[in-house]
Simulated scan of single mutants.
Amino acid sequence: MQEVDQARLDAFMGKMVGDMGAAISASLVVLGDRLGLYKALAEIGPATPLKLASHTGTAERYVREWLAAQAASGYIEYDADKEAFYMTPEQAMVFADEGGPAFMAGGFEVLAAMFRDEPKVAAVFKSGKGLGWHEHDACLFRGTERFFRPGYNAHLTTEWIPALDGVEDRLKSGARVADVGCGHGASTVLMAKTYPKSKFYGFDYHPASIERAKAAAREAGVEDRIEFQVASAKDFNGGAYDMIAIFDALHDMGDPVGAARNIRKNLAPDGHWLLVEPFANDDLSANLNPIGRLFYSASTMICTPASLSQEVGLGLGAQAGEARLKQVAEEAGFTHFRRASETPFNLVFDVQA
């Protein structure tokens, strides 16, 4: 063995303490989100543990410990003089404002699913087989919707669709739009609310997600202009769609080229494919950063196993990058592939035949 550099070891151990603290805090975020502690604290302002416990119908002793852990994490603030806890506006946006553009608590449900499903993933590591989306813990489905919905609310109808040449005008006047891999329908419902003259069709192979999407449409009052149906990306039909969208799902598919061919077949001659994928550079070294850490980890536990569970099993992964995605589109017969927009979390492409 090489001689150990004590200073480097101490620094690395410090990193481990920080990482373990972040990891263990994830369970407390799920707990606080489930019990409504964040939303209550943001609503009532500075509060003692007793006040927050009384407001949420929880036990003071447990709430006291939870609050201390949250303050130690920097997720909330502590006023020592008043012995009270409170949230800054920024912390409230992240943990309490579910409809806002920065809400992150839902993402911690995705982390919970990874821990619960680790034995299943360990088994496919050894067998080389896959693990289907439908085989995961149900908190993955809820968490995915709640994690991605704020980004869609912030960007989908204000930046991404307007970045596609002429598409927004069509949707305003009345168009046919397919949302493939729609999950719980967050993106579909948002588009239907924004463009009331258009007709939307949501497709997903997961029956339970389609049922939840139908309920979401009813709750939003847009069920009259959305049809949800159980169908895979390779099997959906209807034809002559002015726009077909896939949000953060192409890389999960076993045969993304086959899915892209079906999209091309069902697009109107001048239709647009709106492809949204996790942000990634083409070079692995350029992805070795906090965003890449998050997406490579999710890809290991969720995305790659999902792809390998299906026919072809291409296994693009959540960090496929623009060049690889363009290759998929070109293999399917598309000739126009343009990066239309991006965020720190997403790449947005305008794809045409």
Rank of each mutant, 00 (worst) to 15 (best):
L9E: 07
M13S: 08
G18A: 11
D19T: 13
D19Q: 09
A22T: 12
A22D: 07
A23Y: 04
S25T: 14
A26F: 10
V29W: 10
L31T: 15
D33A: 08
D33W: 02
G36N: 11
G36W: 12
Y38Q: 09
K39M: 15
A40V: 14
A40F: 06
I44G: 03
I44Q: 08
T48P: 06
L50R: 11
T56R: 01
G57E: 07
G57M: 04
G57S: 06
E60K: 11
R64A: 14
W66E: 06
A69N: 10
A72E: 13
S73H: 04
Y75W: 09
I76T: 04
E77R: 15
E83V: 10
F85V: 07
T88W: 10
P89W: 02
Q91Y: 09
M93P: 00
F95P: 00
E98A: 15
G100F: 07
P101L: 07
P101Y: 05
G107K: 04
A113P: 02
R116Q: 14
P119D: 13
A123P: 06
A123F: 08
A123E: 15
A123S: 15
K126V: 08
S127M: 03
S127W: 04
G128S: 03
G130W: 00
G130Y: 00
W133K: 02
H136T: 07
C139S: 14
L140W: 03
G143N: 02
T144P: 01
T144V: 03
F148V: 06
T158R: 06
I161F: 03
A163K: 02
A163D: 01
L164E: 04
G166H: 09
E168C: 04
K172T: 10
S173E: 15
S173K: 14
G174C: 02
R176T: 01
V177Y: 01
H184A: 14
L190M: 11
G202T: 01
G202K: 00
F203L: 02
Y205C: 10
S209V: 08
R212Q: 11
R212W: 10
K214V: 13
A215H: 08
A217I: 05
E219T: 12
V222E: 00
D224H: 13
R225D: 14
I226T: 13
S232H: 04
F236T: 03
N237W: 09
G238Q: 06
M243W: 01
A245D: 03
D248R: 00
A249M: 07
D252E: 12
M253T: 05
G254C: 09
A259R: 01
N266Y: 04
A268S: 14
P269R: 04
H272V: 14
V276F: 01
P278M: 01
D282R: 10
A286M: 11
L288W: 10
R293H: 14
L294V: 04
F295K: 06
A298T: 09
A298V: 11
T304V: 15
T304N: 03
L308P: 05
G313I: 13
L314D: 05
G315M: 13
L316W: 03
L316A: 13
G317W: 05
Q319I: 09
A320W: 06
A320D: 06
A320P: 00
L325N: 07
E330C: 09
A332G: 13
F334L: 14
H336G: 10
H336F: 13
R339G: 09
E342G: 10
P344W: 15
Q352R: 15
